[in-house]
């Protein structure tokens, strides 16, 4: 369902050209749980952003659900993001002035759903992440783990087919990271495709498939030359 073919992404500033992705080709099928590892600066986030239509690609082709993404205009891209894709960020990215309910409600608003339907979905997702009792709290009144669970609820509220997570446990302690991983596994069991970037190999191991990004290129597994040092370096980076 996700098909990238020779995708490249070049960041140009006045002085530097960074090739964040080069000839990046990858297919992900419906229902997979893919972990993405790789050294810092290798292009993991860039890949995720392109997969999530947050950034344009410089070259190559990208098909999502059989549709060529490059042919979509802003409104259509926004719609795909809104309906098919859920994002989970390392730093939660909740809107501080909105309470938990309204935060989860944001993507549903852009979807134009009726108020009753929105309420039903928000409540169900908050129940799923175990925060139904905190609906009227502001993000700042929750712990980091709770905030990340709110972010997951927000990502799930739109019932996306795709969940893109960029180091979702990066800011959490092991215990909380575990519970988030359990939640993701549960979601994946429900049929949602998940792509998760992580630095932690122990977490990556829990995914069904692992891919390794290096220098803007991808390979399955932990890389052909996956050496213990590299693993060590990656883990230390987290």
């Amino acid at each position: 369902m996700l098909r990238m073919n020779s995708v490249s992404k070049v960041y140009r500033t006045d002085t530097v050209e960074t090739h964040a992705l080069r000839e990046f080709s990858l297919s992900v099928e419906e229902g997979e749980f893919v972990s993405v590892t790789g050294p810092s600066g290798s292009g993991k986030t860039t890949f995720l952003n392109i997969a999530g239509l947050l950034e344009e690609l410089t070259d190559g082709s990208y098909e999502l659900d059989g549709r060529d993404i490059s042919s979509l205009n802003d409104r259509e891209r926004s719609r795909v993001r809104n309906e098919k894709i859920g994002f989970i960020f390392q730093s939660f990215n909740l809107i501080p002035e909105l309470d938990i309910f309204d935060n989860v409600d944001v993507p549903l608003r852009y979807r134009g759903l009726k108020s009753a339907e929105r309420r039903r979905r928000v409540e169900r997702c908050l129940e799923l992440v175990g925060l139904a009792s905190r609906m009227k709290h502001l993000p700042a009144q929750l712990s980091g783990g709770q905030q990340q669970r709110v972010a997951i609820a927000r990502a799930l509220a739109g019932e996306p087919r795709f969940l893109l997570a960029d180091e979702p446990t990066g800011n959490l302690d092991t215990h909380m990271a575990d519970s988030v991983m359990e939640l993701l596994a549960e979601i994946n069991a429900g049929g949602t495709t998940i792509i998760m970037v992580t630095h932690e190999l122990t977490l990556a191991d829990r995914a069904k498939r692992n891919i390794f990004v290096r220098d803007g290129n991808v390979s399955d597994g932990y890389g052909s030359d996956a050496s213990p040092e590299l693993h060590f370096a990656s883990a230390a980076n987290a």
Binding site: R75, R77, R81, N82, Y110, R111, R154
Partner: peptide, 11 residues
């Protein structure tokens, strides 16, 4: 963030 969550430019 709102863009990521599905807000189009016109919205």
């Amino acid at each position: 963030l709102r863009r990521a969550l599905g807000a189009s430019k016109s919205t």
